[in-house]
């Protein structure tokens, strides 16, 4: 069954407060799906390229410094955070990322993003509204 990415976004938005953007991009930085809250705009190509670069660097750091498998990366700021997690979609290595606004709860974000990343591995998504 095909589910719209918009629906996926709505589901996560109902569980996590202050979600601004949800993005799925290929590991080499091509955006597949992006959904923002109303009134919030982001350059999708830039977000995809940045998440691709940061994830690749995080993976290299995990391998070389921690000698372990990379799972996720988080950038925290005074106004929110950017959370990136590896996933696969339609047999392609991908990155699922989320931008969150005020007072994010990192534990909750990690839990739901992990869950969503696993779901995406077997899902068929569409860009329909």
């Amino acid at each position: 069954m095909t589910e719209s990415f918009n629906q996926v976004f709505s589901d996560i938005e109902s569980k996590l407060k202050h979600v601004k953007v949800l993005n799925l991009t290929t590991a080499d930085g091509f955006p597949l799906f992006t959904q923002c809250i109303d009134g919030f705009d982001i350059e999708t190509d830039k977000l995809s390229a940045v998440t691709s670069s940061l994830t690749a660097l995080s993976k290299a750091a995990a391998k070389q410094l921690l000698t372990s498998q990379f799972e996720s990366t988080c950038i925290e700021t005074d106004k929110g955070l950017l959370y990136m997690i590896q996933t696969n979609y339609q047999d392609k290595q991908c990155i699922l990322s989320m931008l969150s606004g005020d007072k994010p709860n990192l534990a909750q974000i990690r839990y739901f993003m992990n869950k969503l990343a696993k779901y995406i591995e077997t899902a068929t998504l569409s860009a329909d509204k």
């Binding site: 590991a27 080499d28 670069s53 690749a56 993976k59 290299a60 290595q93």
Partner: peptide, 19 residues
């Protein structure tokens, strides 16, 4: 340190640097 990933489009090679 390399940050190559599998390319999802045809760029004439399998891997490409993204970091």
């Amino acid at each position: 340190l390399n940050t190559d990933v599998k390319s999802s489009v045809d760029i004439g090679k399998e891997m490409t640097t993204v970091g």
